[in-house]
Design a protein around this nucleic acid. Structure first.
Lengths: 347, 347
DNA sequence: CTGAAAGCGCTAACAA
DNA sequence: TTGTTAGCGCTTTCAG
């Protein structure tokens, strides 16, 4: 257990050596020539006294805090934030870094975002992770550029910044293909109406998968609504009441899929017997708890957080040049999570 | 925009004064006697240069970092973590503090938890918030005591530590009363089987509310299962198939309520016409998205986070003696969130 | 009204 | 193989 009150010079005194020696052995300085006995002595004494270095003093001297700033948009409004934080924390900790978190609202003014970054800068974080809670484009605080930075789940509108985002299109392909592979040919897509990358990319992935299967992607039915339960419900109702009802349904997200479940129930359509459904996001609270369990596509939030921290640290330590990565976003895989909502179409 | 490279002495030089003067005006030191002109000059110059103090150096000198450590158990597994963090961050930021976050697993070894606290201590955080993701009792890392600390959503098993927890019993009363007030008299409770405070307290609250309404709380039907959707489903099935079926159902949490919805649907029991349902937790993803919307009781995670940060800072700044608060946990209100799942029983 | 200088706890260049 | 010392950027005592 570390004792705040004891410093390096107390250890030096107790061990009968100089502070330099203590510093050298505790930091395992490569060029230090110190006898094994002295090393042992120092370590033992340091242990006994419960010495822990004052990281502030270290940082002041070395110009390295070992802290990463994480500014997170709307930390509390989605469960995704937790996974990003966890991924970043795990990766950071593995390299001896810690996270300073600042929450910011997606709707916050430019000044307030600047102030957030400013606070991190005054604390001399070694780098900054800027995370949004869903994949979108952002204009970054100007002062962000004064330190290495990487974006999580977003792309920069102003200037090239290294960023990591999910493979929306690939995820949509995988989702659609899971329906195709089960034998479905009449497949509909319930899309979102928001103008975000995911809306475009998931549609493109859907069509591409259909096309690759020899079907006419352009002709496949698509409905769009707000990407909430209610939107899923009304769009599913439209689609399921139409002629040539699809036997497979790919939904923009799990919330819309939840609405589709209700629509199906009201129309007396059974899932998965009469209708197979695939979602997107893997919001466990929904996907795992619907009945039957919803097959869906997971967003790699943990992985994005970890990737970002990892590469940020690489840049800080001069192992990577972020500029090289900045030309286009790094895209991470969205894996299929199979549960019970997909089966072969009934004859 | 702050410029890392410029320090207090640059400002002093540019303003033609000493660093002392700069420090005094920028920190608004009360006893400093400095002419208004000089003050203006310093402020202007500091602004122009984009000076921002180096908080590390400040901290080293003042022995105050203005950082709070937040060790959070299982940050990513529940959406509740976000609300605690947000509450703590808001409160901290309002007082000029920032949060350092460390995630720890509820299942982590004692050494690893010690190491987590250790990391915070080495960074000289002014105080520590220790948060769990559901209300329970914990044994705290030994080294936690070397700095002011407050527990969020948990009670200490070893020694008195200030803590803040939800009013489980009160929440259960409010939930039950909402059923009572709508005219229900046959009310059942679907409880959890885990041995945690919430299980006991919610049952007590349920019975007390029944008793207060002149009903026999002891006689009211109670079923217990794992507090997940499946558990809610099977326990609801048992209860709804029994004789003298209740017209009102209070569920241990929203997940169990979700299971109860399914059970009711299968039995042809309509909500809320034939059965009113109340949940607990207000997991928005579930409660707001079920159909009809689930009336439930919200856990004060944001408020607990804020309360904890607030009082921790008070203690750090010598405005409060945490020891005085430590004798028993501070209990925060759990308000009812009314949606559409409760109505008067049909004649 | 303002400034000089010591010192917070550490690292690293240099000396011995 | 080990020790002396300057200095990281700031606050604060004490002296003008």
């Amino acid at each position: 257990m570390s004792n705040k009150n004891i410093g390096i010079k107390d250890v030096a005194a107790a061990a009968g050596v100089s502070v330099t020696t203590v510093s050298h052995v505790l930091n395992e300085v490569s060029y230090a020539r110190i006898s094994p006995e002295t090393r042992d002595k120092v370590r033992t004494v340091s242990e006994q006294l419960g010495y822990g270095p004052n990281r502030l003093a270290q940082a002041l001297r070395t110009q390295r805090t070992g802290m990463l700033g994480l500014v997170s948009e709307d930390i509390a409004t989605t469960p995704h934030a937790g996974r990003i934080i966890l991924g970043a924390d795990d990766a950071a900790r593995a390299r001896g870094y810690n996270l300073m978190i600042i929450n910011t609202s997606g709707a916050a003014s430019e000044e307030s975002r600047d102030a957030d970054v400013e606070a991190l800068l005054e604390r001399r974080v070694d780098g900054i992770l800027y995370a949004t809670m869903y994949h979108r484009q952002v204009t970054l605080p100007a002062n962000l550029s004064s330190v290495p930075a990487v974006l999580v789940d977003s792309e920069s509108l102003n200037g090239a910044v290294t960023s990591v985002i999910p493979d929306e299109e690939g995820g949509a392909r995988v989702a659609t293909r899971s329906l195709l592979d089960s034998g479905h040919t009449r497949i509909g897509f319930l899309n979102n109406t928001d103008d975000v990358p995911a809306t475009r990319d998931r549609l493109r992935g859907f069509r591409a998968a259909m096309h690759d299967a020899g079907l006419d992607g352009r002709a496949a039915p698509v409905e769009a609504e707000l990407s909430e339960v209610e939107g899923g419900y009304v769009s599913a109702l439209r689609m399921l009441r139409g002629p040539d009802r699809p036997t497979g349904l790919f939904c923009y997200n799990d919330r819309m899929a939840m609405g589709a479940y209700r629509a199906a129930a009201e129309l007396g359509i059974r899932i998965p017997e009469d209708l197979s459904v695939v979602g997107f996001d893997d919001q466990e609270l929904i996907a795992a708890n619907l009945h039957p369990g919803l097959t869906t596509v997971a967003l790699p939030h943990y992985e994005m957080g970890a990737w970002a921290a990892e590469h940020l640290i690489d840049a800080i330590e001069g192992r990577t040049d972020l500029a090289l990565l900045a030309s286009r976003p790094t895209i991470l895989n969205c894996p299929l999570v199979s549960r019970a909502s997909v089966t072969a179409p009934q004859a």
